[in-house]
């Protein structure tokens, strides 16, 4: 893969993946700014990382607690910031016909 290909983020596509409706102006601005950030990130190719674990895998620990019931939010508390609610539920646009 050539560097020039890599730096060409398809911002519109990525924005769809991120569920973020950018304006055309924003998409164009980010396209240019992020190309520079990714060009800067090219330097990460230089260090020798062969035989190096990814830091994600190395540090992941499974920490489990006892599955015991305990007091937590009431429905009222959980819904206290809801933009729309009814019958102790969050209301969203219809997703099934």
């Amino acid at each position: 893969m050539r560097a020039s290909d890599i730096h060409k983020i398809d911002v519109a596509h990525v924005a769809r993946l991120a569920r973020l409706d950018l304006t055309t102006d924003e998409a164009a601005l980010f396209q240019e700014q992020l190309a520079r950030v990714l060009e800067y990130a090219e330097k990460l190719r230089a260090p020798d990382t062969s035989g190096m674990d990814s830091a994600v895998e190395g540090d992941t620990l499974d920490v489990l607690r006892e599955d015991e019931p305990r007091p937590w939010f009431t429905a009222e508390e959980a819904l206290s910031n809801a933009p729309r609610q009814a019958n102790d539920l969050f209301v969203v646009p219809k997703v099934v016909e």
């Binding site: 990130a41 990460l44 990382t49 830091a55 994600v56």
Partner: peptide
């Protein structure tokens, strides 16, 4: 792999 995983490996080197 190109970006995220590579960065995680470089993070190891920094540590």
């Amino acid at each position: 792999d190109e970006y995220y995983n590579r960065a995680q490996k470089v993070r190891r080197l920094i540590r």
